[in-house]
């Protein structure tokens, strides 16, 4: 069991989302950076879809009531255990009575804390994700508060092997694994993070000039951004002729442009449908990058073909499968 001493900016329980219910208007929710979420689970021997904590910028203070196998992936907010800095992207044993703190943003916007066995919260509509607006899922349908206690499930066989592979006979409050998973690669340049996109369904509706500027200009993520979407400022985009759009489904990463001309990138807590023209769609392989961008960061968009986008998606999925195999191998090496 863990107890939240300080909640941080926005710490919530998330899994890979609530799918199959969007036709009833129920949003998908789930981790923003699914790659980091999945890897943090794999590193502690969980299924990749187990419930983890999503931590945003200002991390929580967490007291461990019992010894636990955890991992922290995604954004780096300088984690430490009882005063000692710890490294991310690797399995970590935290001893009973220790406290995990975060002391400042080094990189990224969201970190994921997984625990062997996963966090135990009720499943609603086939998911443990917190749906803040409807106040369902996760821990009591809300972000975590000081005083909340969360239990974890029974660690599986793989979790136990990883636990045993770590020598916990030390006096210290924690034990780090000597191997780690590769962290997120950032395609950054002075002009901003590069996000690859494919054309949106209404791309042709935009004026020639707007189509061109969308790929030439840099856009800034404004403070009015959250898990639902990033509101961008920069070049104002316009249609070649005024047109009414019939509402239709939107996607994780859809880039829609309302009448004011400022693009919005739809994210994990997006509504299920929308009536604004979509100029582009973020490729799935770059969604984790996007999820780590924060207000004030700059984005640049590059168009690739659908074929390349699907090739990159498959490549990223194969990498995760490889990592999974690698963890199983490492965990059983000393047996």
């Amino acid at each position: 069991m863990i107890t939240i001493k300080k909640p941080g900016l926005l710490t919530s329980v998330q899994d890979l989302g609530r799918y199959g219910f969007q036709k009833y208007g129920v949003i998908a929710s789930g981790a923003m950076d699914t790659r980091s979420h999945r890897i943090s689970n794999l590193l502690v021997g969980n299924e990749e879809g187990a419930a983890s904590l999503e931590i945003s910028l200002i991390g929580p203070e967490i007291h461990f009531e019992e010894t636990a196998l955890i991992s922290i992936c995604g954004g780096n907010f300088t984690p430490s255990i009882s005063g000692y800095p710890v490294r991310q992207w690797r399995p970590l044993i935290v001893k009973k009575g220790s406290t995990l703190r975060f002391s400042g943003v080094k990189s990224g916007c969201r970190a994921y804390l997984s625990i062997a066995g996963g966090f135990l919260v009720p499943e609603i509509m086939a998911s443990k994700s917190t749906y803040l607006r409807a106040e369902i899922g996760g821990h009591n349908g809300r972000a975590l508060k000081a005083g909340d206690s969360l239990k974890s499930g029974r660690p599986g066989e793989l979790s136990q092997s990883i636990f045993q592979a770590l020598d916990s006979s030390t006096e210290r409050n924690f034990v780090e694994m000597d191997w780690s998973a590769a962290s997120n690669k950032l395609l950054s340049s002075a002009k901003g993070t590069v996000i690859r996109v494919v054309k949106g369904r209404q791309f042709d509706w935009f004026s020639e000039n707007s189509q061109k500027r969308f790929f030439e200009e840099t856009f800034e993520i404004t403070p009015q951004s959250d898990r639902m979407g990033y509101r961008l400022s920069g070049e104002s985009l316009s249609l070649s002729t005024a047109k009414e759009m019939v509402s239709e489904a939107v996607n994780f990463g859809s880039i829609q442009v309302p009448a004011d001309g400022n693009p919005i990138i739809l994210l994990a807590d997006r509504q299920t449908s929308g009536g604004y023209p979509k100029i582009a769609e973020t490729i799935s392989a770059d969604l984790p990058l996007l999820a780590q961008a924060k207000p004030g960061d700059r984005l640049r968009f590059i168009e690739i073909t659908l074929e390349d986008a699907q090739r990159l998606y498959i490549k990223s999925e194969l990498e995760i499968q490889q990592l999974k195999q690698g963890i199983i191998l490492k965990a059983n090496q000393n047996k």
Binding site: V198, R201, E248, A249, N251, F252, G253, S254, E281, T282, I283, S284, L306, A309, Q310, Y313
Partner: peptide, 10 residues
């Protein structure tokens, strides 16, 4: 049929 991103079809 049209693509809706790289994991969707409209």
């Amino acid at each position: 049929l049209e693509p809706l991103g790289d994991r969707g079809i409209m």
